[in-house]
C-alpha cells in the first residue's frame, strides 16, 4: 500500500490517458449512433496524444522554444532546460491526422444519412435486411 500511492500519483497522467482511451473505446464499441462513435474515436485519439505529450514532460524545464531568439545561436544550450520537443512534433501529426479522419468520417455519415435517413446503426441494418 505504501508503494502504491506514490505510484499512482507519479503516473497520474498515464492513468488518465488509459481512462480516456477506454472511454473512447467503449463509445466506439457500444454506442449505436454513428456520430457518437466518431466522438468516441476522437476521444480515443486525443487520449493517445495525451500519452505522448506526457512523455515529453520534464521537471523543471520550459517550453521548447529557445529563449535566446534568432540571434543567439552560439550560446550553450542545456538540454535539461527544455521540454522534449519530439513528442510534440509527433502529436502535431497525430492531431492533423485526427481531424482528417474526422472529416472523412463525417462525410461518410452524411452520405449514409442521405441514403437511410437515420444515423442509428441498428435501424440502418434493419433497413438493409428488409431489402
Amino acid at each position: 500500500m505504501s508503494e502504491l500511492i506514490p505510484t499512482i500519483i507519479a503516473k497520474y497522467n498515464y492513468w488518465i490517458y488509459i481512462t480516456l482511451m477506454m472511454i473512447g473505446l467503449y463509445a466506439m464499441i457500444a454506442k449505436n449512433n454513428l456520430v457518437k462513435k466518431i466522438v468516441g474515436m476522437n476521444i480515443f485519439q486525443t487520449a493517445i496524444i495525451l500519452y505522448y505529450v506526457s512523455i515529453g514532460v520534464k521537471k523543471g524545464a520550459t517550453i521548447p522554444i529557445s529563449t535566446g531568439g534568432h540571434g543567439a545561436a552560439h550560446e550553450a544550450v542545456h538540454a535539461a532546460d527544455y521540454l522534449n520537443p519530439l513528442p510534440h512534433v509527433l502529436m502535431l501529426t497525430a492531431i492533423v491526422v485526427g481531424v482528417a479522419t474526422l472529416g472523412v468520417a463525417l462525410a461518410l455519415c452524411l452520405r449514409i444519412y442521405s441514403r437511410y435517413n437515420t444515423l442509428e446503426e441498428d435501424e440502418i441494418l434493419a433497413q438493409i435486411r428488409k431489402k
Binding site: 496524444i49 521548447p64 521540454l83 492531431i95 474526422l102
Partner: peptide, 25 residues
C-alpha cells in the same frame, strides 16, 4: 504541460474546426 505547439494546433484544429465540422454534419 508546456507543449505550446500542440496546444496551438489543438486549439485551432481539434477544438475550433473540428467542432464546426461536427455542427455542420
Amino acid at each position: 504541460m508546456g507543449a505550446v505547439d500542440v496546444a496551438f494546433t489543438e486549439a485551432s484544429v481539434g477544438a475550433g474546426v473540428s467542432s464546426v465540422f461536427f455542427v455542420a454534419a
